[in-house]
Structure formats: C-alpha cells, structure tokens
C-alpha cells in the first residue's frame, strides 16, 4: 500500500479534488480551501529546511511578511504576476543575505535566533512604515479569489513536489546527514554550508510568494499583522502534529488543524488555542511521528 506510485496517485487525487473546489460556487469553501493550500505551501517549504536538517526555524513569518510588504509596495509600479515574482525573490534574497551568519548558530540557539530575527525585521518595517506616514496600506482591484486560489494551489503543489523530490535526492540525503551528525557529514565531504544555505533560500521563496498572495486576498497590509509570529508558530505546530520527515505530514496536519479551527475558532477562540497547545505537547511527547506516522502504521496493519 505504501509504494511510491500509490503516494503519487494519492497526492494527485488530493490536488485534483482541491482544484475542483471553485466549481462548488461557494465563497466560504473557496476561502477555506485557500487557507488549506496556503498552510500546505508554507509548511512544505519550511520542512525543506527544518524537517530535513533539524534546524528548526521559528521565524518563517519573516519571509511571508517580506513577501507581503514587497508586493504591496511594488504593486504601484508593476502588474500582479511581476509583483508576486518580486515577493518571492525578495524573500529568497533575504534568506541568502542572512543565511550564512544565521546558519552557523546551532540547536536551540538557532531556534530563538530565527524568532528574534523575524521580530527585529518586523519592528524595523513597522518603524519604516511609521516614518513614511503609513499605518496600513490598501490594495484596490486585486485579482478574483478564484484566480488567487489557483495560484496558491499551484504553490502548494510545487512545494509538495519539491519536498518529495528532495526526500529521495542526493541533496536531501546531504541534508539528512546534517541532521544526524553535522560534523561527521562535513568530515566525509558533504558541502554542509552550501547545502544548508541552499535549503534555507529554497524554503524562503515560496513563503514570500504566499505572503504576497495573502495580501492580495485581504487587500490590506499592516506590518504587525503581516509579520505576525503566530504564523511561524502555526507552521511549526502543524508540521509537528502532521509528522516531520514525511511528505504527507504537512497535508494531514493542515487538514486536521483547519477542520479544528473551522469548528472552534469563531465561537471559542481561547478554547481552540488551548486545545492547540495541548495537542502540541501530546504530539511532541507521545506521538513524535505525527499523524502521518499514525496513518502509516494503520495502513501497514
């Protein structure tokens, strides 16, 4: 049951079903599907660095936020597709510039550094916006939700394909070697620094474009919301609940959390957050392989 063709077929079916959502003609379900695709794209990208190398980034909101900011600013000068490309490029460039110093830092230090870095950038952008006399920015005549949804779905598919390719590539094996023992990996000739930097940049580009798409969806940009650290935390939570190291993990984690949030968020926001916190603890301590691991074991039986 767990062969590669089966998995590819399963992913194709999921993507196909998601592609049909606009045919339902329901604004509500389209919105939900948009969010599902968004988290899948974000988490698969994050996994590219963090699940494979064990460098847990708690600052991925920074790439998402930069993407959003670049889009909203550049929309004055160019059309939407170019602006989105610029969002992704800006996020990738940011990762490239800060990658070398940041990736020298290891373990728990890396986790808190990425968080601190994201907050620093957030505050710098907020200061810049205040200086420019902008407290928030609006977008007029954004593309339709349907168009944005297809773009987001494409990103989710690309990110998932990238994760699947990485898992069985030479690149991915190098990253896994870094996770298992970085010093040993370097000693046997794995180009550790280059691989880490490449993974970091690759994991930043799609979140940048995702940030741009989300701003187009909400038609509204405010720095403190675009760089919301809750985004970083949700990425990590969902990835862990879904299961690290399996391509299906982010899909299962996202579906689970989106359903939970649709049921609870609007009516009982605090209860929802408390359940989320409890889930995180339970999964980390008792189900380290995540939902994907549970499902995998269930299928084998």
């Amino acid at each position: 049951m767990t062969g590669k063709p089966f998995l590819i077929a399963a992913f194709a079916v999921v993507a196909g079903l998601l592609a049909l959502v606009p045919q339902l003609g329901s604004e509500y379900w389209l919105g939900v599907a948009f969010i599902v695709a968004m988290w899948i794209a974000l988490i698969q990208s994050w996994s590219l660095l963090s699940a494979t190398t064990g460098y847990i980034s708690l600052g991925h909101a920074v790439f998402y936020g930069i993407g959003a900011y670049v889009l909203v600013v550049s929309l004055d000068w160019m059309s939407v597709p170019y602006a989105l490309a610029l969002s992704g490029a800006a996020a990738g460039l940011l990762a490239l510039v800060v990658g070398l110093p940041v990736l020298r830092v290891k373990g728990p230090y890396f986790v808190i550094l990425t968080f601190g870095f994201a907050e620093l950038v957030k505050n710098l952008v907020m200061l810049l916006e205040t200086r420019l006399g902008q407290f928030s920015r609006m977008i007029f005549d954004a593309p339709s939700l349907e168009a944005l949804y297809y773009a987001m779905l494409a990103l989710a598919v690309i990110a998932t394909a990238l994760a699947a390719w990485t898992a069985q590539s030479r690149f991915g094996r190098g990253l896994a070697a870094i996770r298992e023992n970085e010093v040993a990996a370097e000693a046997i000739g794995v180009p550790v620094t280059r691989l880490k930097l490449f993974a970091f940049v690759a994991s930043a580009i799609i979140p940048g474009i995702v940030g741009g798409l989300l701003v187009l969806r909400t038609s509204y940009f405010a720095a403190d919301q675009a760089f919301d650290p809750a985004v970083s935390f949700t990425i990590v939570t969902t990835a862990i609940v879904g299961g690290l190291g399996r391509v299906s993990g982010p899909l299962l984690g996202t579906l689970f959390l989106v359903i939970l949030s649709e049921l609870l968020w609007a009516r009982f926001p605090q209860a929802y957050m408390m359940i989320l916190g409890a889930l995180l603890i339970v999964f980390i301590l008792f189900v380290p392989q995540g939902l994907a691991g549970l499902v995998g074991r269930g299928l084998k039986r």
């Binding site: 728990p108 808190i112 408390m274 989320l276 916190g277 409890a278 995180l280 603890i281 980390i284």
Partner: peptide
C-alpha cells in the same frame, strides 16, 4: 526532549495565556 523543549513550553504558554484570558 532538549531539542523539543521550546515547542513543549510553547504549548504550555498558549494554554496558560488563553486559560487566563478565558
């Protein structure tokens, strides 16, 4: 556990904050 402590305590933090808010 050491590697994951941040995440465990983040969960605890979310529970405490929202519990207090509730």
């Amino acid at each position: 556990l050491e590697a994951n402590s941040l995440i465990i305590f983040y969960g605890l933090s979310v529970i405490l904050q929202n519990g207090a808010s509730l």
